[in-house]
């Protein structure tokens, strides 16, 4: 299998490291490559959209002429894992907690609505343990993280946490071959989501 990690901006190196580790754990052979233009897209068995700034990654995807092709491939079932900024780019509805409506390029492939910077600024960024359906308890790092506030259609939530102003909100959602996470498993070094992702590719 050949997994691509969108390498235009963000913590793609951490994802590459963790994917290799997860592959080793699963006993799967394959390669993990950074993706910066269209040339390799069609040869991928799955793609990871890393954490970073969603505004920046979205604009760079557009400038690299990948938006349409990527959107089409993901809609047609290319396994996709998005963390933080990645989840924002996958969502069909996006708002910002302070600024409100945002105008930024998105892939808009998943039936979820997210609020950017939902927990606050970097000062309010945190780590904690969360229960993930089918995985168990893992350590999750939230960095200026979004919250998944709406889920419809075939999408469903796999994990949620209690937030002071927001109530019980989802932080991990799946739909078909897509996984969207509000937190960074690549920063806490948890391979669980990457293993789940590899299982989806193997299916």
């Amino acid at each position: 299998m050949r997994i691509g990690v969108l390498g235009l901006q963000g913590d793609y190196e951490e994802h590459i490291y963790l994917l290799k580790k997860a592959m080793g754990k699963k006993g799967v052979s394959g390669e993990v490559i950074p993706v910066k233009d269209r040339s390799v897209l069609r040869r991928l068995s799955g793609i990871v959209i890393p954490g970073g700034e969603s505004t920046v990654i979205g604009r760079l995807i557009e400038r690299s002429g990948m938006t349409e092709e990527l959107r089409e491939m993901i809609s047609q079932g290319l396994p996709t894992l998005g963390t933080c900024a990645g989840a924002i780019l996958m969502a069909k509805r996006v708002r910002d907690r302070v600024v409100g409506e945002v105008t930024q390029p998105l892939l808009s492939v998943m039936s979820i609505g997210v609020v950017r910077n939902a927990f606050g600024r970097q000062r309010e960024s945190f780590e904690t343990e969360v229960d993930v359906e089918g995985v168990g308890r893992i350590r999750a790092v939230f960095i200026r993280a979004p919250a998944i506030v709406e889920i419809w259609g075939n999408a469903r939530s796999l994990s949620s946490i209690e937030a002071p102003d927001l109530g019980r909100i989802s932080i991990l959602a799946v739909e078909g071959n897509m996984i969207a996470s509000a937190f960074h498993p690549e920063i806490s070094g948890e391979t669980a989501l990457h293993e789940m992702f590899i299982d989806i590719i193997k299916k």
């Binding site: 700034e53 900024a85 000062r123 960024s125 945190f126 904690t128 939230f142 937030a163 960074h184 806490s188």
Partner: peptide, 22 residues
């Protein structure tokens, strides 16, 4: 104001990794 533990080393060092290639 935050949930879990804020401002841990991992949260503080993890934040700038989101700036990579930016």
């Amino acid at each position: 104001r935050c949930i879990g533990s804020c401002g841990t080393v991992r949260v503080k060092i993890g934040f700038p990794t989101m700036f990579r290639n930016g």
